[in-house]
Amino acid sequence: MRLRRPTVAADLPAGFHAAEARALQVALVGVLSAVERAADAPVPVDVAFEAGRDDAVVVLCRNRVVGFVPAAYADGLRAQVAAAGRRAHLVAPGRVVRDGGLRRVWVGPEPEGGLPPVPGGLDTLPEPQPTILGVPLRRDGV
């Protein structure tokens, strides 16, 4: 009996930064082990893609949502996710890297000369308020 879904390698003509890193920092830090966080070096990971709502393509790392595919790359990957079907994972190599005070996911092989700068307007979701067990730590406007 096969318990794991088969994997299909994604065809990526170029790598890209996953979108919405600011809003998903808790998940991004959560996918790293304590040793990986302490080393503060790029962490090689495998990422998977799944179809999301409203034609979005979701980036998963270690079974957690860590970003979204930017609009410029979404059409090609959406077709590949559909072709892979529900019984297979569409996967690609990736890296969790530090960009200033944020962790980000680079999807695809690392280009010669290092990673390019993060394009502007990639993160559109607001940063979530800090909470403890769902209770906000601060009350804005009170």
Rank of each mutant, 00 (worst) to 15 (best):
E50S: 06
P109Q: 13
G141L: 12
A18N: 09
F16G: 04
R78K: 09
V59P: 00
D54G: 02
H17T: 10
V65Y: 03
R95S: 15
A14C: 06
R64C: 01
A14T: 06
V26I: 08
V26K: 11
G141M: 05
L122Y: 00
V29T: 10
M1Q: 12
R53E: 14
A88N: 13
A23L: 02
G30Y: 08
A10C: 01
P6N: 08
V97G: 03
W106S: 04
Y73A: 12
H17I: 07
E36H: 10
V66H: 10
V31C: 12
T7E: 15
R98I: 07
Q25L: 03
V65L: 07
E110M: 10
V29M: 05
P136L: 09
A82R: 14
V29W: 14
G101E: 13
E110L: 11
V81Y: 00
R62P: 05
G120R: 15
Q129F: 06
R78G: 09
E112N: 11
L32G: 13
H17S: 07
P42N: 09
V59A: 00
P44A: 15
P136D: 10
A18F: 02
A18P: 09
R103K: 09
R5F: 10
F68N: 07
G113F: 07
R86M: 02
L60C: 04
V29A: 13
D75I: 03
A34W: 03
R37M: 07
V31F: 08
P116K: 04
R95W: 14
P13F: 01
V91F: 00
P116F: 03
V43P: 05
G15A: 07
N63T: 14
S33H: 04
V97W: 06
Q25E: 02
R98F: 05
V97D: 09
G101W: 02
R37F: 00
V66L: 06
V135Q: 13
V81P: 01
A51S: 14
R5K: 15
A14M: 02
V142G: 12
P6V: 07
G114E: 07
V97A: 14
L28V: 01
A72G: 12
A83N: 02
E50G: 02
T124G: 04
A82S: 12
G114H: 08
H89T: 01
G15D: 09
V45T: 06
T131K: 13
I132K: 08
L133E: 13
V97L: 10
A14E: 14
A41P: 02
E36Q: 15
G113R: 09
G113S: 12
L102F: 09
V31G: 08
N63Q: 14
D123M: 01
D99N: 02
D46H: 06
V43Y: 10
T124M: 03
A34K: 11
R62T: 10
R86I: 01
W106V: 05
D75F: 05
A23I: 00
